[in-house]
Amino acid sequence: MSAPPTAKISVRDLTMAYGSFVVMKDLEFDVLERDIFIIMGGSGCGKSTLLRHLIGLREPARGEVFYDGASFTAAPTADRERFIRRFGVMYQSGALWSSLTLAENVALPLEEFTRLPARTIRDIVSYKLSLVGLAGFEDYYPSQVSGGMNKRAGIARAMALDPDILFLDEPSAGLDPLSARRLDDLILRLRDSLGSTFVIVTHELASIFAIGSNALFLDTATRTQGAIGPPCHLRDHSESATVRSFLNRGEDSAPETQP
């Protein structure tokens, strides 16, 4: 057994399976503090499944996930809450609680896990919604606003407790280019000002190059990780034709020789 890893998130020898169907095997990577770590790959390759493994919604078939060197996988259920409290998760379609207004959605974790007075909670909720450009929509129900707004409200809810690590599942899919750009700015700004670590599942190339500090490519053909590294570097210099092709929208060129 090697020494425990020291990165913010470390995945070791991870195999994900649904029953006997292996989705991905032999995953091994580190996410560093303040990283904006992109998980990318074709549709249906297991990106969201990997995310669900990282946040503990699914158990790995083999392997372990570590946070700051402590094993999340091996932690007993009671201890897991300690890990989970540091996560913020935004689900693919927002997954807002549909019987609560946007403000109540963001306020719920604050009410449950802090002792802040109602007024402060209201201010924080208003601030979080402003950050994602939803000021003024506090009293709307998720069904009354658009899908993109649901998504942004989902991010506001994920940030409610100022988590260490934010997991975003396809945050910019379905957003207009300007909103997507704003979201990228928001992610960079939050990383820079608050030092949060981001793990983002996406296949929006513009976002990947704009914000990704590191990227992991999941290869459907081999069912394992294809490449890992800064996205711009992978685009131009990856040895794998699949990765280059993916990052160049199919217009593949021979790998440029390193200068």
Partner: peptide, 10 residues
């Protein structure tokens, strides 16, 4: 943490 920007924003 968020309490300060929330206070300023209000």
């Amino acid at each position: 943490d968020s309490t300060l920007p929330a206070f300023l924003l209000a």
